[in-house]
Design a protein around this nucleic acid. Structure first.
Lengths: 351, 351
DNA sequence: CCCGATTATCTAAACCTTTAGATTTGCTTC
DNA sequence: GAAGCAAATCTAAAGGTTTAGATAATCGGG
């Protein structure tokens, strides 16, 4: 910790010491005009010596660009958010952009609040407005529950990109939920399963609906028995996985495999199976969703669909950068989930 | 999305429209001088109408204070980091501070790199220097592996606070590891356990050593049998929990309870017990550390010590704010971990 | 060695605030 | 209604950069 403050040294000091004008130093720094190699060297040396770093506040003021984006997370402690931030950050680093993070702490704050819907909107709008006054060049909004947020925020012309939200008109990054669910089914079918049950999330949830589409498509395409008894509506919680598995196992003709729409409900499946004495995967196969870290600590370790969260974040940042530059964003295909094969899937006992 | 850009409206426009000087608007905004209620009203109304937000870049330039701190995380995807950030954010909100987040992605980047130690240092030093040029008022550094970082960074007079790191001279926030481990032991002793084994983390890890101290202290104070065979050195991974539990169960006089220094190794304990046919908690009690989210999805749900991560973050921000103001930071006691009682601890079979 | 054409460098304004210090306004008191 | 004083408001500089436009230096050719 030296005595001199970083801020004490300005471009003025550098100019003086290098015997050039302030402008020249600026040109060296930004490469905006030619400067003779000899002088460039000299300036650079002085900059190095004095450990000069341009004052970002002044730069932003003049440039009307901060190279900083705002990231609004509805809740950073929710499992998929840090990965998305990691992706954003990864890309931001490469683009020399910085991240101003706002954590809405939605879950925590809303539980203390009566009119939930409104307060959530005002929290978010507040965050947007604060970030704009911080002169961010754009905003990425990371929702924890995909839903439609179209036109929610007045960003006064600054671009906004949604990660893991579903909006109609704005730029919004998701992964291919339908395909993922279809792939999971394909995996089960390849093992020989025919009677495959599904435990969905809440049906007002968009991913839940999309995943169901994939399930349904697989049923049709693979010509599997279509049996409404095998379609159970869960609510994302372990308890619902447990309860619905119990129901499934009591069926006259129980399924040989269950597709749980998240790993947490898959835990419920495991519990129910253990309780009834059904062996997994020998007597019942299970496949989850999300590749939560605990999924490989369970006994048995469950197979699951890994979400391309890093990629979502990365692409969100990429798209935002394009929007900031005013360039059109290419129509990328949705990133796909990846099957993680572990120990909860095996061929059915009786073919 | 209106046509006018936020940045188009400056204090000048407000002043003109409200028929006052620029200075007066500034006084209204900051309350730095008296302004007649009538004019204040008028100015505020115009501000409201035109949706004016002060240009933060200009403010920072003049004030030489950005109300922004830098947060450097070694890796945001590591389990304890988001909670810490949440705590920082919670406090920052109250202090009207903003967070510039830098994610070093240490784990990911270092694996691709040869000279690990050096590159880690240069990544971190780089981040510090970038943040300083962004004019942050201070920095919080969140390490993922506690270790000594004293004097690592040249912050040119800006204060820096370490969260979840161990430094000697600088301000550094941890929780009371020793007490936590002691409390866990006390819990087991209260259930009647005497032969308690410990599976440690890597012994070059500071928390591991501190937790061992707590274990040892409990052994002494409760007058428990001191048996080196019951002290196993693990490496934080599930496999080591598994292997060492196997060793423990083969002892002539096996332990009735195991203290695992993290939940991941506790998973290993569960696996080993399941394999050998030892029932948990009837025949063997297990207590973990970290309260990882999976700890309540395991069968049985394991009891564990919850870490005060939110508080660590909150206090880190509090301390940093004091340092920024040049005030002394009070000597708070270390925050404590909290026992989460679940289903993996019961009284031993034979008293 | 000078001229013209390039190329390099400099001067000064602008970006949008904050804030001393100067000036004006509004009130009280005689 | 004027003097005196406090309160309100204004003027203008400053903060560190970028960037047109102006000026100075360099170079090649005759």
């Amino acid at each position: 910790m030296r005595g001199e403050t970083l801020a004490d040294i300005g471009i003025k000091e550098i100019a003086a010491k290098a015997n050039v004008s302030i402008a020249t130093v600026s040109y060296v720094l930004n490469g905006t005009r030619n400067v003779r190699p000899k002088t460039r060297e000299r300036v650079l040396r002085v900059i190095e010596e004095m450990n000069y770093k341009p004052n970002n506040a002044a730069q932003s003021l003049k440039r009307k660009r901060t190279n900083t984006i705002g990231v609004i997370a509805e809740d950073v402690t929710v499992f998929n958010v840090p990965e998305i931030i990691d992706g954003i950050n990864d890309c931001a680093d490469k683009l020399d952009m910085h991240i101003l993070l706002t954590n809405l702490r939605l879950d925590k704050r809303i539980s203390r609040n009566f009119d939930q819907v409104d307060s959530y909107r005002s929290f978010a709008a507040n965050a947007v407005s604060e970030l704009l006054s911080k002169q961010v060049d754009g905003i990425i909004y990371i929702g924890i529950h995909p839903r439609d947020l179209t036109g929610l925020f007045d960003t006064y012309g600054k671009p906004i990109v949604y990660a893991y939200c579903y909006t109609q008109n704005d730029v919004s990054l998701q992964y291919n939920d339908e395909q993922a669910s279809y792939d999971a089914m394909a995996h089960l079918v390849k093992q020989g399963h025919k009677r495959i049950a599904v435990i969905t999330g809440m049906m007002d949830s968009i991913p839940s609906r999309l995943r169901f589409n994939g399930f349904y498509k697989a049923i049709m395409e693979y010509n599997l028995p279509f049996d409404p008894q095998l379609m159970k509506m869960g609510n994302w919680e372990a308890e619902s996985g447990y309860r619905l598995t119990m129901e499934l196992l009591e069926l006259n003709e129980p399924p040989t495999a269950i597709l749980a729409m998240n790993d947490v409900m898959a835990v419920g499946v495991l519990r129910a199976a253990a309780e009834v004495g059904v062996l997994i995967p020998r007597e019942l196969s299970v496949i989850g969703f999300d590749n939560r870290e605990f999924s490989e600590y369970l006994i048995p370790r469950i197979s699951t669909m890994d979400l391309p969260l890093h990629e979502i974040g990365y692409q969100a940042m990429e798209s935002l950068a394009l929007l900031i530059k005013g360039e059109p964003i290419p129509n990328n295909p949705l990133p796909n989930c990846k099957l993680i094969e572990r120990d909860s899937v095996a061929p059915p006992l009786r073919l």
